[in-house]
Design a protein around this nucleic acid. Structure first.
Lengths: 367, 367
DNA sequence: GTTAGCACTCAATCGAGAAGAGTGCTAACA
DNA sequence: TGTTAGCACTCTTCTCGATTGAGTGCTAAC
């Protein structure tokens, strides 16, 4: 769908004005604003055309025009000039990540917070990276007292999990240390589905009568390694939208926030329209799967964490969103966490893990 | 300050009505509602008295009365009959805590969430338990690759911390394991200020040329064990207040939420008025230290975690708060987390830690 | 193709009046 | 002396019509 150069300019001007004012835009405003000198009457004619073509809507006769979903879509696809990266901005992003954040979940979560703070007007969201199946990179146990020990697991995606485990039977420091060592050598590099009953019984033989403590440990492994269907979404800056004029009605705001908090499955919220080679996905208004988001736009970008794990980070706001700005900071942040995570994974002793890993792993189907 | 029985009854009726309706209460409403049969005119006289005494205020002449801060205070101190515990309710609280939550921070945080959910109208807050000085209960390292290992610390309050540490120099699995063992035997039971340069050099001697890896480990210990001044406050259900009539104005709501998020120091928000032997503190309206909370009431209860560590859990809402209900569920939840944490600490091998701990520890001053 | 001009539309604003809830005060009553 | 009925008064809220003003569509002229 093509538009004349003049129509494009007018549409762009309307959208950008509306993005910043949230008020319907009249022909006079545009005729004054735009570079090509045209009278309001001419603009009016063009606006009527644009409305007929579906790019603009009128809240009521004799009011200014506001962009339709289609209008925003055209804006995003065609009119948004490639934003140039501000080196300064990238530097600021880098600074915002404090040095001590060297763990995956902190990095990702902090990225979400940063995003929410950096625009201050929209809600930001992140999902933790999900890879189809995770393996055990490293694990260990730590004796605490006769009935307690700590289980620690480093997954192949570098996330660390730990759990305090209480046992009925008494354990000794030696037996815990022994189990720790055995577990590590036997299980490191394995996926959950590669932990067979046979290997477990083998491990149990090393333990003698303290074998039962293996049970809660395996529970823990299962719990942590089982791929969660639909990574949970973390929202940040939910109350940012309270400063948006479209949410001066508290009920609307609460409805949206409640909806988000109760719908943790990002897949169900937004369509997967990163069909192009781009990994950025922009969903405008009714393009979102959820009806509750019909007046919102969601922009998400996919980041990589390791070989085949990806997560998303994004923004939810009213359709009247500052797309240019959001896209830019989103891309800036994703760029940065990609490098951060890249560093994190570069340090992986991947070879070492690989040598322990059988070649023929059951293939996990994607549903 | 004493009130006649009848005045008390009228005040109570007004407050409870106002709590549930948020509308100024007129004399006729009370004359119909209350058990002792009195005409509206009589009630009016009594209300005029109560206003003169400062328990009620009139938003404007010829409107009903609403309780003043003093009125609420009287209500809380004198009129609130001792709530009886509902066994059912306690059972529900118990169920709400899923079994897998066996770590201090999850327990406390979950308590906050539960509190926010259970009333659904107010903001809940929790602070992590703070004890003056924490010691190392147990620590360990876990080798990951030639430049990476994981440091794990279990503090005396049972909180587990871990951090991925990257080293410039190469480390071997053996050296990490050795250090792990040495650290544990040498440092377990110690407070931060008991870790002397001498003990560190002693440890270093065990390590030979891989001694430098001790540095980031000590950094980590410092970071985790240094007592934070003013435990951070975690809020939950901040958007709950959006459903309250006093916050239909979005700006007010946003102001409050922003204020809370930017003021993490609970000490500065509310006065420490748990002066009685009670550990519950109720601050009504302007009794709060922060002016931003002048239309809010805060109720906090202190829970115990271990011997001398305490944290707070509480509720923030409009002064028109359902005190009876909030107090009850607050006490219920604190009761439960006290027992949960009690179990957690009972399992502490305290003797074992004690034997390693020198008697004369530098006394830390309270400021 | 562009523009000036004009009649028209419709939301938002304003103000006057009416309604209604509630009070204070007075006088009568038990 | 305490309680109550009644009435005038106050003040908010609601309603409704008039006004305003931003903006449009259309027509005619350039």
């Amino acid at each position: 769908m093509d538009l004349s150069d003049r129509k494009s300019k007018i549409l762009k001007a309307i959208i950008e004005d509306y993005i910043s004012t949230a008020e319907p835009i009249g022909s006079r405003t545009i005729s004054k604003r735009i570079d090509l000198k045209l009278s309001s009457a001419t603009i009016r004619n063009e606006m009527a055309d644009l409305e007929e073509m579906g790019y603009l809507v009128q809240p009521h006769t004799s009011s200014g025009r506001i962009p339709s979903d289609l209008g925003y879509r055209f804006y995003v696809n065609e009119l948004l000039k490639k934003y140039s990266f501000n080196v300064n901005q990238l530097e600021q992003i880098r600074k915002a990540f404090s040095v001590k954040l060297l763990q995956l979940d902190s990095i990702v979560r902090e990225a979400g917070n940063l995003l929410a703070r950096s625009n201050g007007r929209y809600i930001s969201l992140v999902t933790m990276p999900e890879s189809e199946s995770l393996s055990i990179r490293r694990m260990g146990l730590m004796y605490m007292d006769a009935h307690t020990f700590l289980a620690i697991l480093v997954k192949s995606d570098s996330m660390v999990h730990n759990k305090v485990i209480y046992t009925q039977i008494e354990v000794t420091e030696e037996s815990v240390n022994l189990l720790s060592q055995v577990l590590n050598t036997k299980l490191a590099g394995l996926h959950l589905d590669e932990i067979t009953p046979e290997s477990l019984t083998e491990i149990a033989t090393y333990l003698g009568e303290s074998a039962p403590i293996l049970i809660p440990v395996v529970e823990f492994l299962k719990e942590v390694l089982t791929p969660k269907e639909g990574a949970p979404v973390y929202y940040s800056g939910t109350t940012n939208i309270l400063s948006q004029p479209e949410y001066t009605d508290v009920h609307k705001a609460k409805e949206l926030i409640d909806f988000l908090e109760n719908n943790q499955d990002l897949q169900k919220l937004i369509p997967d329209r990163s069909s192009k080679n781009e990994n950025i996905s922009v969903s405008i208004g009714r393009e979102n799967k959820a009806k509750a988001l019909k007046d919102c736009s969601t922009i998400t970008i996919t980041y990589k964490a390791g070989k085949n794990a990806t997560g998303k980070i994004g923004i939810i706001g009213p359709t009247r969103m500052d797309y240019a700005n959001v896209l830019q900071s989103l891309e800036g942040i994703s760029l940065h966490i990609n490098t951060l995570l890249g560093q994190l994974y570069q340090m992986d002793g991947s070879e070492e893990v690989v040598k322990n890993k059988p070649k023929k792993r059951p293939v996990r189907r994607l549903e």
